[in-house]
């Protein structure tokens, strides 16, 4: 098992290098002259040359990448242009908040998706199955920002739940956090829940069509026991499906955090876009991608724990 994990982590390294290269390229994509942008139009040629040298812009691009990745590995992701703070510490602080929202919505999406998908897989032609099936197609099509807006409207109209932020004016207790978390988590979870429902329904019905299911019936096992075994066999697929949703959620929380003023990476990136604060955007994107790569390592590892054939 340890060797599996080591192998899988080693496989992730080239992907992580690739990810960092892509992020570096996006920095280079910015049109215009970064030095001119920083110094303004009245800079002297001497000041220009100094800054170019200080930023390492006179070096060949591959060397610039090496400098950059070296700094990143030391936690130095640059300085936010708009906030004049270290991007690293800004992003790190916000990331914790994003993680709370991410875990909550992933939990909701997986739980709901599995329940709905199971209904569809077990009773595909029943009225309930058809309703669930088309509802999940609807859920897939609703943008997360639309759900967020609808829920925000609901909160505004009813006043039942807080409309934004992470904590009320109060004590910052867990209950307070939970109340603030409910709507953003549902808003982020609805679309992935639809996706999980549909994909899990396919995965589970594939398992149910396998011969061992009929063999278990022929051995007199109860329907409940058979469904239990089928679920166990659909677990590897569920892991893959859920892993995919992490990627979807990391993107979707951007809008949800913006609409609900949740102080996470998404909201940071949103304000960074309007102030064209590229270092902050890139840091947010980089950390999300790294998290996603690591999540996939975890998914594959758990997969190996569940399925002895993968372990071998």
């Amino acid at each position: 098992m340890t060797s599996f994990l080591t192998r899988r982590l080693l496989l992730a390294i080239p992907i992580l290098i690739g990810v960092s290269i892509v992020v570096f390229i996006t920095i280079k994509l910015i049109p215009g002259d970064p030095v001119a942008a920083l110094l303004g139009p009245n800079a002297t040629p001497q000041a220009r040359a100094d800054l170019v040298a200080r930023m390492g812009l006179n070096k060949p691009i591959p060397l610039q990448y090496v400098d950059w990745i070296w700094a990143v590995l030391h936690g130095n992701l640059g300085t936010s242009i708009s906030l004049q703070q270290s991007v690293g510490s800004l992003v790190l602080k916000a990331f914790g908040n994003t993680l709370i929202l991410l875990v909550a919505s992933l939990f909701l999406a997986t739980l709901g998706g599995v329940v709905l998908g199971t209904i569809v897989a077990l009773r595909p032609r029943s009225v309930l199955g058809r309703i669930v099936s088309s509802t999940s197609l609807g859920a897939i099509s609703i943008p997360q920002y639309t759900v967020a807006l609808l829920l925000l409207l609901f909160a505004v109209e009813t006043g039942a739940l807080p409309t934004g932020g992470m904590h009320g004016t109060g004590d910052g207790s867990f209950g307070d956090l939970l109340a603030h978390l409910v709507l953003p988590a549902i808003a982020a979870a609805l679309t992935p829940m639809g996706i999980v429902a549909r994909m899990f329904a396919v995965a589970l019905s594939d398992v149910l069509a396998q011969e061992f299911v009929e063999s278990m019936r022929a051995r007199g096992l109860s329907q409940a026991a058979i469904v239990r075994h089928a679920m166990h066999n659909a677990l590897p697929s569920l892991l893959t499906i859920t892993g995919l949703q992490v990627g979807y959620l990391l993107g979707g929380v951007l809008f949800v955090e913006t609409i609900f003023a949740w102080p996470g990476i998404g909201q940071q990136v949103y304000s960074a876009i309007s102030s064209r604060d590229m270092p902050l955007i890139q840091a947010g994107v980089l950390i999300s991608a790294v998290v996603l790569v690591l999540v996939n390592v975890v998914v594959d590892t758990v997969h190996a724990l569940v399925d002895p054939r993968v372990r071998a």
Partner: peptide, 24 residues
Amino acid sequence: MRGIRGGAIGMVPQDPSGSLDPLR
């Protein structure tokens, strides 16, 4: 009937590779 299946009447399936739960 579930008591009859596997109790009074046993069944051996065609494809042995598919007749057992692969994960247990």
